[in-house]
Simulated assay, not measured.
Amino acid sequence: MSTNDLARGHSSATLSEASGLPVALSPRIRPLWPGARLCGPAFTVQGAGGDNLALHHAVLEAPPGSVLVADVGGARFGHWGEILTVAARQREIAGLLIDGGVRDAAEIQALGFPVFSRNNAIFGTRKDFRGVLGRPVTVGGVVVHAGDLVVGDLDGVVALPASDTRPILDRADARVAHERELMERLREGRSTLELHDGFEAAGR
């Protein structure tokens, strides 16, 4: 399975709280289709609004299992669609996180390819700017470096620093175990107010 055992199955919210760091992207970055989940190391792409040539190059260069993380300035253009999705799946790319617009939502959902974007837009793009690959980019207000662990679900997206991933996952494991204990007490009839201190410790 790898990629830290797919981030050990934790939600973006749990990972954000366990990190203690400003790793949560803007809530304006949303899944393109219900049920989409991102998990993988970032392959960063600095593009330009209204231009998707950088994404074509990124699909060729990104290693299998990586998540393309693209900064196109939040522009409302269809930077990504069905054609790039088919190409990305062929190269075993794990998904796309883009601060900008995408299109062909129904087709991308049918292909099961996870995409998180700032908006949907049908406006076409030019292909002039080759872009820069592998440099830090800002997506959803968070600086993402190549190799950072990206996890996205219905709650949102986090980008965990590569150097801190293991301790963050360990703390997330501990939080989830503690929450399970609290849930059992609730099922035994205890109230949330009685367990207030425990929920505070769990960040709930």
Score class of each variant (00 low, 15 high):
Thr3Asp: 15
Gly9Asn: 09
Ser11Met: 01
Ser11Tyr: 00
Ser12Cys: 10
Thr14Pro: 00
Leu15Asn: 05
Ser16Pro: 01
Ala18Pro: 05
Val23Gln: 02
Leu25Lys: 03
Leu25Phe: 07
Pro27Lys: 03
Arg30Gly: 05
Gly35Leu: 01
Leu38Gly: 04
Cys39Pro: 02
Pro41Met: 12
His56Asn: 02
His57Asn: 14
Val59Ala: 06
Val59Tyr: 08
Leu60Ser: 09
Leu60Trp: 01
Pro64Val: 03
Ser66Val: 13
Val67Leu: 10
Val67Pro: 15
Ala70Phe: 08
Gly78Ala: 08
His79Cys: 14
Gly81Asn: 11
Glu82Pro: 04
Ala87Leu: 14
Ala88Phe: 12
Arg91Ala: 00
Glu92Arg: 13
Ile98Ser: 04
Asp99Ala: 11
Ile108Gln: 09
Gly112Asn: 12
Pro114Thr: 10
Phe116Arg: 00
Phe116Trp: 03
Phe123Ile: 06
Gly124Ser: 15
Lys127Thr: 14
Asp128Pro: 00
Asp128Arg: 06
Arg130Pro: 05
Gly131Trp: 07
Arg135Trp: 02
Arg135Cys: 15
Pro136Gln: 14
Thr138Cys: 09
Val139Arg: 08
Val139Phe: 10
Val139Ile: 15
Gly140Asp: 06
Val143Leu: 05
His145Ile: 05
Asp148Leu: 00
Asp153Glu: 08
Asp155Met: 02
Asp155His: 13
Val158Ile: 00
Ala159Glu: 13
Asp164Tyr: 08
Arg166Val: 14
Arg171Tyr: 07
His178Ser: 14
Leu182Tyr: 07
Leu186Asp: 09
Thr192Pro: 08
Glu194His: 07
Leu195Lys: 03
His196Glu: 09
Asp197Val: 00
Gly198Ala: 12
Ala202Trp: 03
Arg204Phe: 05
Arg204Trp: 09
Arg204Gly: 02
